[in-house]
Design a protein around this nucleic acid. Structure first.
Length: 803
RNA sequence: GCCCUUGUGGCGGAAUUGGUAGACGCGACGGACUCAAAAUCCGUUGGUAGCAAUAUCGUGUCGGUUCGAGUCCGACCAGGGGCACCA
């Protein structure tokens, strides 16, 4: 058996390139858009995890093309962002050069593995032709009042003098130098994502995302319904609180406000203990970046002395406290505290010796509070709540909310955990934010016709001492004229986050070379949506939500045809090291796909990654199993020796052939890749059991295996004298031929298997019973017993119940 | 603490969605070919008992529903991941 997989693979890869086999046009019947998350081209090269999802989607793409779909399966590069910048700083090369090199490596690797990407639509988010439109879209956000500047606290490393992302500041420690991170106020561009909270929630109904993906987004958006209540302060002034438990309002014994909120600043002139308060505020600032669970054994806080608040429903005067468990940027930055029915309030009250009043008659609360999750399940009655006493909790909740609304002290509102999107990065390697600060006109957008606002070339791309982007040092770039009044002005030096370019790249693939618009409406209408989007679970809440927000905004200003541009979203499991741990250099368990492809061939690697386990679940690497897949391919090659010249199918193989067509095509569409491979192995084994098989038989196997192992199947197919599989059509099956007429079914006595009988699927239930009762081993268990009943299911099972 | 997810042979994993548990592959053992090795081929392979037919136990644990449960219901246990004082 002469078989040089390297030559074969190169040969067919060249064929596909030369013939532009996988390039698609924006026209024709049955468009279908398959997308995998475009990678970040890191210096490490392609990971075997990439190979898993690219192969999976590739298999679907190849099959669907043969089934007559116009398939778009594009690839590009998500190349802006901190890792490239860090890599560049470390290796003293320009990020642009590093990215170019990395892309080259990735692309070569992808080609070596035979993915059927449409390379004619390739782009990188770092291409000026692409980020021009990212900037243009930012300007649309700005022009529609969706982008604004705000001063917010950021993670700041005083040692490195730089702003850190939350990931780089994990545990309150700077990842690079190890010094502790503090919060620093910084003016940042923000996108009003929170105003889309409800739309992003309801929009999920128009998608076919996997349930766990939807759930991740729902949790991230974090909707809670409740009542916002106005609270008066004794001696003037007021604030409001948000509660999801209005039924407990009579149980308020104190209020807690956020140390980082606006309210305490307003109250400061009136407080009797300003030193104590200020000290606490300072402590909170230091703490907030750190892992709070460590520091929060108890509930800290100080009383705001000299100021009392009034419970709006009963006029009772209660104290106000400062507590760092109340967040300045969620809800109203103030909460009502009902220690009897909220465990956190309970602990706080114990810590500070505060009154606890029970308002729901629900049992003992001396040890801990009885919370909503507990009391709402019972028909508990209200107490200590004036006219609501005796009412069941469910009802009291509504009536109290009504009362608050009627009296104008409160209103029902929804709150969301999701915040506005911090869109600024004090980094060099990102899309420059196209805004100009004019001393007279304020913020003025760069005129659209001047886009792209190019990222200038610099000698040094390390962050500046004061945490500004390195762009701030390039004075001849920073200094410019105001587009509005022509006076001297300065450019924004912050750049966009990595998430910007990836929020709309799937739209660009629909019309990648358009230089008039980011993508034409016609092109987007033709493809309609991304039909099938595969990516990691880690992006379910971040990238995927940003992308949906971006699209919904574009939809609202009439620039995309659908409010949701992604239909089905699925996620793949990770490929773990052979020790069942995440692959990492430090653990020494990294498998390089190049090495595998070199030693065993791309087809073997592809088959193995499809066969290794449930696609949606993590699976450990096993080189032994990989070798098994190599043996499978070798066997497919070997049985070519059995092929006769006949163009007829072998009659005795008809049933298994039709079953395999059905199984493979269904499994590929439902991500059952491992069982698809298994079915192909079974078919191969069946062929191997024959003395001879026909050309037609063999070609069928090659066609079915082609989406997963495209090179070797094309080669063998060519040797048979057929035209390439990639230019052929997918076989069809006849449902009636997938059903076996003869079948072995089990016979149970009292639910225990005692025999199997050969039956015809059409045999009547009575004949099954008759046959079953004749079995020797069945008789052993029925003789001498009374047969109570016999359950017989056609083609399935017989169960005899005896006493 | 909350949310998600997974528990099936020595291993990766199948199981028509309530109907013969362990498909397919790996590994292991025995055999054939070979001077030998590799490759390939044949056979065995969940535990226990038995030469065998067969019996019995068996899908994380305990209970339930059912003629019948890996699958449905209830309570728990363990591993993996995420969020984390969200009022």
């Amino acid at each position: 058996m002469e078989y040089n997989f390297k030559e074969i693979e190169k040969k067919w890869q060249k064929y596909w390139d030369d013939k532009k086999t996988f390039e698609c046009k924006n026209e024709g019947k049955n468009p279908y858009y398959i997308l995998v998350e475009f990678p970040y081209p890191s210096g490490a090269g392609l990971h075997v995890g990439h190979v898993r999802s690219y192969t999976a989607q590739d298999a679907i793409a190849r099959m669907m093309r043969m089934q007559g779909h116009n398939v778009l399966y594009p690839m590009g590069w998500d190349a802006f962002g901190a890792p490239a910048e860090q890599y560049a700083i470390k290796n003293h090369i320009h990020p642009k050069d590093a990215v170019r090199e990395n892309i080259k490596t990735f692309k070569t690797q992808m080609k070596t593995l035979g993915f059927s990407f449409d390379w004619s639509r390739e782009f990188s988010t770092t291409d000026p032709d692409y980020y021009k439109w990212t900037q243009w879209q930012f300007l649309q956000f700005y022009k529609h009042g969706m982008a604004y500047k705000d001063t917010i606290p950021v993670n700041w490393c005083p040692q490195c003098k730089t702003v850190l992302s939350n990931e780089d500041a994990a545990g309150g420690v700077c990842e690079r130098c190890g010094s502790s991170v503090v919060q620093k106020e910084k003016s940042q561009w923000m996108l009003k994502m929170s105003s889309y909270s409800e739309d992003l929630l309801t929009g999920l109904a128009d998608t076919n995302f996997a349930d766990k993906v939807k759930l991740a987004q729902i949790n991230w958006i974090g909707k809670s319904t409740g009542v916002e209540v106005n609270v008066d302060i004794v001696g003037g002034g007021k604030f409001s609180i948000f509660t999801t438990c209005p039924e407990t309002i009579y149980g308020i014994t104190f209020f807690v406000i956020a140390p980082d909120g606006k309210l305490i600043k307003e109250l400061m002139p009136r407080v009797e203990n300003p030193d104590e308060i200020n000290k606490y505020i300072e402590e909170t600032k230091k703490k907030s970046a750190m892992d709070r669970t460590e520091l929060n054994k108890g509930k800290t806080g100080v009383e705001v002395k000299g100021i009392k608040a009034i419970n709006p429903v009963n006029g009772k005067e209660v104290p106000i406290f400062l507590g760092d468990f109340v967040l300045g940027d969620y809800g109203t930055g103030a909460v009502m505290a009902v220690p009897s029915h909220d465990q956190r309030d309970f602990e706080y009250a114990k810590e500070h010796n505060l009154e606890i009043i029970k308002v729901i008659d629900c049992g003992d609360i001396t040890e801990h509070a009885i919370e909503k999750t507990e009391y709402m399940h019972h028909d508990y009655k209200m107490i200590n709540s004036e006219e609501f006493n005796g009412m069941v909790v469910d009802e009291a909740r509504e009536r109290i909310s009504d009362m608050l609304e009627e009296k104008g002290i409160g209103k029902r509102v929804n709150n969301y955990k999701m915040r506005d999107w911090i869109f600024s990065r004090q980094r060099f390697w990102g899309e420059p934010i196209p805004m100009i600060n004019c001393p007279d006109c304020g913020w003025v957008p760069v005129p659209e016709e001047e886009l792209p606002l190019l990222l200038p070339d610099v000698a040094e791309y390390e962050p500046t001492d004061n945490g500004e982007s390195p762009l701030a040092k390039i004075t001849d770039w920073v200094n410019c004229k105001c587009p509005k009044c022509g006076k001297d002005a300065t450019r924004e030096t912050d750049t966009m986050p990595n998430w910007a370019g990836s929020s709309w790249y799937f739209l660009r693939f629909m019309d990648a070379h358009n230089d008039k618009e980011f993508a034409s409406m016609d092109a987007m209408k033709y493809w309609n949506k991304v039909n099938w989007y595969n990516g990691g679970m880690e992006h379910a809440a971040r990238h995927l939500l940003y992308a949906r927000f971006w699209v919904q905004f574009l939809y609202n200003i009439g620039l995309v045809p659908n409010k949701e541009m992604i239909d089905t979203r699925v996620s793949h499991g990770m490929v773990l090291g052979s020790n069942n741990e995440k692959m990492s250099k430090s653990k020494g368990n990294v498998i390089n796909p190049d090495d595998i492809a070199n030693e065993f061939g791309a087809d073997t690697l592809r088959v193995y990654e499809m066969f290794m386990g449930d696609y949606q679940q993590d699976a450990p690497w096993s080189t032994d199993s990989l070798k098994g897949c190599k043996r499978f391919i070798d066997k497919v090659i070997r049985i070519k020796d059995k092929v006769t010249d006949s163009e007829e199918y072998t009659k005795s193989l008809e049933s298994i052939q039709h079953k395999t067509i059905k199984k493979v095509q269904e499994d590929l569409k439902t991500m059952g890749y491992n069982t698809a491979v298994s079915a192909l192995m079974i078919l191969t084994n069946a062929y191997d059991d024959q003395e001879t098989i026909t050309k037609a038989d063999y070609r069928l196997l090659l066609t079915l295996l082609n989406p997963i192992a495209p090179h070797v199947t094309e080669e063998l197919n060519e040797q048979l004298g057929y035209k390439p599989i990639c230019e052929s059509t997918w076989p069809t099956y006849d449902e009636s031929k997938t059903i076996e007429t003869e079948k072995e079914i089990g016979v149970q006595v009292n639910g225990k298997l005692r025999a199997t009988i050969k039956v015809n699927v059409d045999d009547s239930e009575d004949s099954l019973k008759e046959k079953a009762l004749k079995e020797e081993n069945v008789k052993k268990f029925t003789d001498g017993h009374e047969i109570v009943k016999v359950i017989a299911i056609k083609g399935r099972i017989v169960n005899i119940v005896v006493k």
